[in-house]
Amino acid sequence: MTTLIVNGESRSIAASPDTPLLYVLRDELGLCAAKFGCGLGQCGACTVIVDGKAVFSCVTPVMVLEGRTVTTLEGIGSRDAPGPMQRAFIAEQAAQCGYCIPGMMMRAQALLNRDPQATDESIRAELQPHLCRCGTHMRILRAIRRAADEMRPKTVEARTGR
């Protein structure tokens, strides 16, 4: 049995240890934001954050994650209380079909957590592994920029303890 901290809660996973994290999230924990796109680590639709890093959950068996911290899109806001990243994607209407969007948001979130001052170039470079077949790339980039602007003052506040 594998234990994971998922969105802040400790969860014991019943699925066999070779099961990809993506299936555990969707089928066992009912967290369906992460999507199955390719299953080969090549499209980014399944991206979640593990210990601060964006990873492809489709190629990550839970066995290797014992005791580690997983954050999914559900962990950074909800329909009723969207987080800054989600608000920015809504404001920019960045989703077309939306299939790629949860993965995009998670990698962008991991980047901004690590580097709140991320430049446009570093956002582009970081999002390189993600495919969007609807072609809404420009809106996605605008949304991430907006999220970065919105998140930054809060980070400063958090740092200065105000």
């Binding site: 080969l40 680590g41 090549q42 593990v50 890093k53 964006a54 990873v55 190629v59």
Partner: peptide, 13 residues
């Protein structure tokens, strides 16, 4: 092509 596993596996693994 192959995905990288550097963010999934730690040094020991």
């Amino acid at each position: 092509i192959m995905p990288g596993f550097g963010d999934i596996l730690d040094n020991r693994q």
